[in-house]
Simulated assay, not measured.
Amino acid sequence: MMSAEKRKRTMSRIRSQSKLENRITKALWAEGYRFRKNVRTLMGSPDIAIQKYRVVIFIDSCFWHMCPTMATGRKAIRNSGTGSSGGTWSATGK
């Protein structure tokens, strides 16, 4: 048997990819975008980071499918001051 602390450490090391993540990365690569996956040096450890354009992408399947257990309390907030045609979005845990 593993202790709770050791199990948490072990499980946090598992890096799985969703079908949605695979589809997006293949499409980006086919379009010529080069990126890094799961960059731990960036805040939030984004799923995809395109460093050339300073863009990060977070892929949360439960968010898009409106999963009631994972999306509870999440709100998409548009950052102000970016104009109507552009901008960034973030998900908050509040």
Score class of each variant (00 low, 15 high):
residue 1 M to D: 00
residue 5 E to F: 00
residue 60 D to E: 13
residue 81 G to N: 04
residue 90 S to D: 06
residue 81 G to M: 03
residue 58 F to G: 03
residue 50 I to K: 07
residue 47 D to Y: 01
residue 73 G to H: 13
residue 33 Y to D: 01
residue 93 G to V: 15
residue 84 S to N: 11
residue 78 R to E: 10
residue 24 I to G: 00
residue 41 T to H: 10
residue 56 V to W: 06
residue 47 D to P: 02
residue 84 S to L: 06
residue 17 Q to C: 05
residue 58 F to P: 04
residue 39 V to M: 09
residue 38 N to E: 05
residue 78 R to T: 09
residue 80 S to Q: 09
residue 43 M to T: 10
residue 75 K to F: 06
residue 71 A to K: 07
residue 13 R to G: 08
residue 76 A to L: 13
residue 18 S to G: 03
residue 45 S to N: 15
residue 13 R to V: 02
residue 8 K to F: 08
residue 27 A to V: 12
residue 83 G to K: 02
residue 49 A to Y: 12
residue 12 S to I: 03
residue 60 D to I: 06
residue 37 K to R: 15
residue 77 I to T: 12
residue 46 P to L: 04
residue 21 E to T: 02
residue 91 A to C: 15
residue 48 I to L: 04
residue 14 I to S: 05
residue 49 A to G: 11
residue 7 R to D: 00
residue 80 S to L: 07
residue 44 G to M: 03
residue 69 T to G: 00
residue 21 E to F: 00
residue 45 S to W: 05
residue 13 R to F: 02
residue 15 R to C: 11
residue 61 S to V: 05
residue 79 N to M: 10
residue 19 K to G: 09
residue 90 S to C: 12
residue 10 T to N: 10
residue 83 G to Q: 04
residue 45 S to K: 13
residue 65 H to G: 02
residue 23 R to C: 02
residue 44 G to V: 05
residue 17 Q to G: 03
residue 38 N to H: 14
residue 66 M to D: 11
residue 13 R to T: 06
residue 3 S to A: 02
residue 74 R to D: 00
residue 10 T to A: 10
residue 69 T to R: 13
residue 47 D to M: 01
residue 69 T to L: 11
residue 55 V to P: 04
residue 25 T to C: 12
residue 80 S to F: 07
residue 23 R to A: 12
residue 33 Y to W: 14
residue 7 R to K: 04
residue 46 P to W: 01
residue 47 D to E: 05
residue 6 K to M: 02
residue 54 R to I: 06
residue 9 R to T: 10
residue 45 S to V: 07
residue 41 T to S: 15
residue 69 T to Y: 14
residue 84 S to F: 14
residue 81 G to E: 06
residue 57 I to F: 09
residue 92 T to W: 10
residue 36 R to H: 15
residue 3 S to L: 02
residue 71 A to V: 14
residue 34 R to H: 15
residue 65 H to W: 04
residue 34 R to N: 08
residue 15 R to F: 03
residue 2 M to R: 05
residue 61 S to F: 00
residue 12 S to P: 00
residue 64 W to G: 04
residue 20 L to E: 01
residue 9 R to H: 04
residue 74 R to G: 07
residue 39 V to T: 08
residue 14 I to T: 08
residue 66 M to L: 12
residue 25 T to A: 10
residue 50 I to S: 03
residue 75 K to D: 07
residue 6 K to D: 05
residue 76 A to R: 13
residue 14 I to P: 00
residue 2 M to T: 01
